[in-house]
Design a protein around this nucleic acid. Structure first.
Lengths: 157, 157
DNA sequence: TGGTTAATGCAACTTACTTGCATTTAGAAT
DNA sequence: ATTCTAAATGCAAGTAAGTTGCATTAACCA
């Protein structure tokens, strides 16, 4: 059923990368549409989390995707856990793809905004400890960890 | 010099609590003004981080504080490290007071939004490990950790 | 007690985001 | 393939959020 790609009538190449994106949508029970593929592609290829505006600016100019549609797509992706909002202390939230293993975090330079990824934060211990000590919580299954500091360049300034 | 409180001409009581707030501002090189005291008071007394709108709604109705002023106050407080923005996955950022020891984090119910605090996340180990493995970073001095799960009430639903 | 500079308030503006409704289209059934 | 239906998109309009410039006020230092 993934063979019926949007734009199947056009010259679109339906590359393996596009098939992978389509599979990601389908596995989240999201219909495979051109705007959704475009948004997902950008997030997949981005090395950093993106603001709505950055994302919108990165979309192909034609055929245009309505701004309203972008908001609705981001909302549906977030609902399905395909993407997530992260706070890199840039005074707004950024969207990023959620990976399977999901122990992906960031170090952010508080001066220039440089972002570096890191994986594995040992939060499973923390999560079980938290649940033990918690008054009101029954389960903890997700976590976010971000570190803030100065990159090698900014530390010299 | 803290004795010259704003509204010193009025009936304001200059309570010890207010003096404490004034001291917090002064120690950040922020002039002690009525709007700033009001904003700081709300954040100090709140048990949870607050959105701009929640904060604005919590301000005393009279004398009114202009919306522009609220934004500017929050900006100046953030610059001086008096407050900080946190992402509790409520689709917006919330402001909270920064405490001295600063190892204060949250567990958030992904269903009802309940927030519980926890302290001490053992991030110092993580931070030194991160700096060791980092390609681009020289120092890491702040961190944010939030946990997400289900509260005892929502887990039954 | 002034004087200086920063903070506030106000008006106008830009940008961000939402809502309702008409149109299109993906995906399932035939 | 063709048709059907619900969901997704686009468009127009509107609301809310956040910003900017400038005049006024007030904190706080000498």
């Amino acid at each position: 059923m993934l063979s019926n790609m949007p734009n199947s009538s056009s010259r679109a190449t339906t590359s393996p990368a596009m098939l992978e994106l389509a599979r990601m949508l389908a596995s989240c029970d999201l219909k495979v549409t051109r705007p959704r593929l475009a948004v997902l592609k950008i997030l997949k290829n981005s090395t950093t989390p993106l603001s709505v505006q950055e994302l919108a600016a990165a979309l192909p100019p034609l055929p245009t995707i309505n701004g309203v549609t972008i908001y609705r797509i981001l909302e549906s992706f977030t609902e399905r856990g395909l993407i997530r909002l992260v706070n890199l202390r840039h005074n707004h939230l950024d969207y990023e793809l959620v990976e399977r293993h999901d122990d992906h975090h960031h170090i952010v330079c508080t001066k220039c905004g440089l972002i570096e990824d890191f994986y594995g934060c040992g939060a499973s211990k923390l999560m079980s400890a938290a649940i033990k000590n918690s008054r009101h919580f029954a389960t903890v299954n997700e976590h976010s960890v971000e570190l803030f500091g100065l990159c090698k360049h900014c530390v010299k300034l």
